[in-house]
Design a protein around this nucleic acid. Structure first.
Lengths: 161, 161
DNA sequence: TCGAAATTGAGAATCAATCTCAAAATGAAA
DNA sequence: TTTCATTTTGAGATTGATTCTCAATTTCGA
C-alpha cells in the first residue's frame, strides 16, 4: 500500500491549526464560514482586499456576508496570521503572515501589482534615525510607488484591482 | 520716518502670491473664503487635518462650509503649495510645501505628534532597491510609528487629535 | 441533549471625502 | 459701472470602506 511521506504542512494547514489554538484559547468558536474564509485566504498568495476575498468566498458559498469576511480577517490579524496593509487607494489589503520575514513593498501605480523586498540596511538606518529622535519604533511603513518594469516598457498590462 | 527694511516674504505671503498666479493661469477666481482658508493654513506649522483647519476657519467666518475647505486644500495640493499625507488613522493631513525639502515622518502613537526627518542614505538605498527590481519610483512613503521621548518616559502627554 | 455564549447575515450607521445643484460672487468686456 | 458668462459656494445627498446592531442561528461543554 502506498504511503504518504511525512511533509511540512501547507501554509493553509498550519494557519488553520494555529487559528484553532488561538480561537479555543479565548473561548471563541469554530464555524463553517470562518473555515471557508481562512482556507480561501491562505490558498493563494498576494495582497487581497476584502472585496476580492469576498468574491471568491461567495463563489463557494453564496450565503456568506461581507461582515463575516471583515470580522474573520480582523481575527486573523489579531492572531498574527495575516497582516493588514493600507496602500494608497483606500481599501485595506491583507497578506499571509505565517513564517514570513518583515518586508516592504514596491507598488506599481499602473498595473497595481505589488512586489516585496527586504533591506536590512534600510531597517538599520531607520532604527538609528528613530534613536536620534528619542523614539521607540513599534512598526513602520515603507512603500515605493512607481512603474514596474513591464509598465515602464509601455506594455499594456492588465490593470489589477 | 522709520522705514521697514525689505525682507523675505512670509511663507503665507509667498503662498498667496503663487496661488494667485496658479489660479489666474487657469481662469479660476479669487474668493474671500479661499483667501481665508489659505491664510489660516499657512499661518501655522504642522500637519493639519481638514477638520482641524475647518474649525479654525469657521472661528473666523462661520459661514464657510466643509466642502470649500476640502476643495481649497485640493487646489493647494495641485498647485504644489501643500502636500497631502495619509497617516494611519483615517483622515488626510496637509502640510505646507513651499521651499521644503523632501522628508519622512516619525509618528507617536500615544500623543499623536508628528516629527520630521531627512535621511539621504535611506533615499539612496530605496532608489537602489527600486532599480534592482526594474522599478521607476515616482514617490514613496516612509513612516516610523512608535513612542516619542516624552510618551516613553511615561509622561501623560495631551493627546493630539 | 441542553442551553449559555458566540456567531451570523442583513441592513443601518459611521466617517471621510466627493458630488449635486440652486443661489451668489467674480471679473472681463462693453 | 453694468452686464453676464463662468466659477464658486454651502447644504445636503452620495459614495465607499468599514463597523455596528440585532434577531435568528450555530457551536460546544456539561
Amino acid at each position: 500500500m502506498k504511503r504518504t511521506a511525512p511533509r511540512k504542512p501547507t501554509p493553509a494547514a498550519a494557519a488553520r491549526e494555529r487559528l484553532a489554538a488561538w480561537i479555543s484559547a479565548r473561548g471563541l468558536k469554530t464555524t463553517r464560514q470562518r473555515d471557508l474564509i481562512v482556507e480561501t485566504f491562505f490558498s493563494q498568495s498576494g495582497h487581497l482586499s476584502v472585496d476580492e476575498l469576498l468574491e471568491q468566498v461567495t463563489a463557494r458559498d453564496r450565503t456568506i456576508g461581507a461582515a463575516t469576511v471583515y470580522r474573520t480577517m480582523k481575527i486573523l490579524t489579531e492572531a498574527g496570521l495575516a497582516s493588514a496593509r493600507h496602500f494608497e487607494g483606500g481599501q485595506t489589503r491583507y497578506e499571509a503572515a505565517i513564517d514570513r520575514h518583515h518586508h516592504d513593498h514596491l507598488i506599481c501605480t499602473s498595473c497595481g501589482n505589488i512586489f516585496e523586498f527586504e533591506n536590512e540596511r534600510i531597517e538599520e538606518l531607520q532604527d538609528r534615525v528613530a534613536e536620534e529622535h528619542g523614539f521607540t519604533v513599534t512598526h513602520h511603513k515603507l512603500e515605493l510607488y512607481g512603474l514596474c518594469r513591464a509598465c515602464r516598457q509601455g506594455q499594456q498590462v492588465h490593470r489589477q484591482r
